[in-house]
Nucleic acid binder design. Structure first.
Lengths: 200, 200
DNA sequence: GTCTATAAGCCGATAGAC
DNA sequence: GTCTATCGGCTTATAGAC
């Protein structure tokens, strides 16, 4: 049950749908105001500029996105390789939805690549770093030797799958990436004294 | 020695620099005309629309880009794992250039994700498929069991490295991706009857 | 094939009222 | 905090002359 939104929340929700669906540069502030059911004066009361609204769009996606990834990981059975693969499988299912258009963080970063100091770009970098940090923690708990490096390699496959699936409009790239991630995890050395109780 | 360009070539060259540097939506046709040293009337004589010019921008990058990749691969010593790793190392060097802003094909696809039928999006997909096809041929010659699947996994790491390097402005992601690619190649089964003469 | 000039509309952002 | 109305600038694309 979606809890009732205040005006600011309605604006962010409307902006999120439009920015994700059309891209930042192709969505006008007029369109956001109309979709949110407010006037532009109200929109500019809550946000100083379009750049601020774009940053709020990504910021609103940060925590829910991370929780979704962690949820897929936690719900899956098997060892860490199978739990990571479950994330890729879930993303493959998402990518088959007709409205799917890739990763909002990556697409926004790509569109704003000429503006490295843009607040939304910083939020995107922070989000990806937070995901890698969470995954490294899980890999550490699973007893792997170099959890940070392993989580970075998994993230590379994840971002590659977002890109390739978008380029070719073919969700099976997530499954290919999941298979590669499984292979890298299985080949990764574990600590000798690892507390291999969990999921081993 | 850059061969002298005709008017159309000058326009494409100017458009390429601007589109890659700023992104499609942030470059006006006025800016392209001024940079190319022609008037807008001339620009619209050679190209029917901005969309056509964007397609020409990516099309002009297609073959040179593929040849550059193949050149790095061919120039490197060692087995196929080292030759693939050489591509990642060369891209890491490119990514350290201050003007580097990721992969033009991926960024254009991301920006135009709402327009799957756009001619430039199709050219981007064709380019990535051509790279994967070339790499699969090389992996086949090297005697690997499933060359197409292996080349797709390498491409995932490559596109992931483009994305991650752009997000974090940190070229070392290419080196991390190269290490992962080496690991996947080494772990990949070879055909029993492989003509393992080359690079083995 | 290239020039000058301009159409026609959309953009982000703002003003003043209540 | 929300409304109506609008500014000045920039956008893609086109018209007519040579």
């Amino acid at each position: 049950m979606p809890k009732p939104l205040n005006t600011r929340g309605k604006i962010v929700q409307a902006a999120s749908k439009l920015f994700y669906s059309e891209g930042i540069g192709r969505v006008s502030m007029d369109a956001v105001a109309e979709k949110a059911g407010v006037t532009k004066r109200t929109l500019y009361y809550h946000f100083d500029s379009k750049d601020d609204l774009v940053a709020a769009y990504l910021d609103a996606r940060d925590q829910p996105n991370l929780k979704q990834m962690a949820g897929w990981f936690a719900a899956a059975g098997g060892g860490p390789d199978e739990k990571v693969a479950a994330i890729f499988e879930a993303l493959a299912r998402s990518a088959r939805h007709p409205k799917w258009k890739g990763c909002g963080f990556l697409r926004t970063t790509a569109e704003l690549a000429a503006l490295p100091g843009h607040p939304a770009v910083k939020i995107g970098a922070r989000h990806k770093a937070a995901f890698a940090g969470w995954l490294a923690g899980e890999m550490e708990s699973a007893g792997f030797e170099a959890p940070a490096a392993l989580s970075r390699q998994i993230l590379l496959l994840l971002d590659g799958a977002f890109s390739a699936s978008l380029v070719h409009r073919e969700a099976s790239w997530f499954e290919e990436a999941g298979a590669a991630a499984r292979a890298l995890i299985r080949a990764h050395p574990r600590r000798p004294e690892a507390s291999a109780a969990v999921g081993a």
